[in-house]
Amino acid sequence: MDASHPHDASPNADASVEDHKPDPAEKFAATNKRGERGPDESIWKGGYSAVDQSGVFFILGLATIGLIGAGVFFWPLFIAIPVIWIVQLLRVWWIKMGVAYELTTRRFMHESGVISRTTDRIEVIDIDDVTVEQGIMDRMFNVGTIRITSSDRTHPELRLRGIKDVKKVALMIDDARQAERDRRGVYIESV
């Protein structure tokens, strides 16, 4: 291109420089490269697992066998069998619908309630300890309770009951906590 003939330049050459605006994904990528706060990414979502009620279902099975045996002599006991199973299934459904959890790179969120819903957040950097509790039946079915101890004022101790793959989820929570502390440069001395 010659300076004496400015019309020889491609009309798109100047427009492409002026029209290039970074999209939001590029902005977030640039932010992450500088070590600044990027988007909050989901790591895990979960809720209550009905497998946690395996012990109760086992006991109900034994009670059903006993009621069938007793129902032979006193037939109205047969009515109790579907009633206890329906009550237990409704109980499990209510618990399952009543809780939801989500772990992100910066927060642990838990929702509770069926009719009215409450959502609470704990910053993962505020989590002090993650403990796994399992009984005999829990270990057999790989479920359990995670106890989170934090410096959060509303929930200094949070118990997540009926979590499937409980050890894996507890490790994810602990890893997210450590990653956020490393990112912010927060180090805790062992006492």
Rank of each mutant, 00 (worst) to 15 (best):
86 I>E: 07
45 K>E: 07
33 K>T: 14
52 D>C: 12
133 E>M: 09
169 V>R: 00
124 V>G: 02
41 E>D: 10
66 G>S: 15
5 H>E: 14
182 D>P: 01
150 S>R: 04
170 A>L: 01
71 G>S: 06
78 F>V: 03
77 L>N: 06
71 G>I: 05
50 A>D: 05
97 M>N: 14
133 E>N: 14
10 S>W: 11
113 G>I: 04
69 G>N: 14
164 K>I: 10
146 I>P: 00
130 V>A: 03
113 G>L: 09
152 D>H: 14
52 D>I: 11
172 M>W: 01
186 V>A: 03
181 R>D: 03
35 G>S: 06
108 F>Y: 08
1 M>F: 12
63 A>W: 04
132 V>F: 06
162 G>D: 08
168 K>E: 11
50 A>V: 08
24 P>E: 08
75 W>V: 07
119 T>A: 11
157 E>S: 15
98 G>F: 07
122 I>S: 02
137 M>S: 04
147 R>C: 06
37 R>C: 08
100 A>W: 13
4 S>A: 13
187 Y>H: 08
113 G>Y: 07
6 P>G: 15
91 R>L: 12
46 G>N: 03
161 R>D: 10
59 I>T: 12
145 T>E: 12
144 G>D: 09
184 R>W: 03
161 R>T: 03
161 R>S: 07
32 N>M: 15
79 I>K: 00
186 V>R: 04
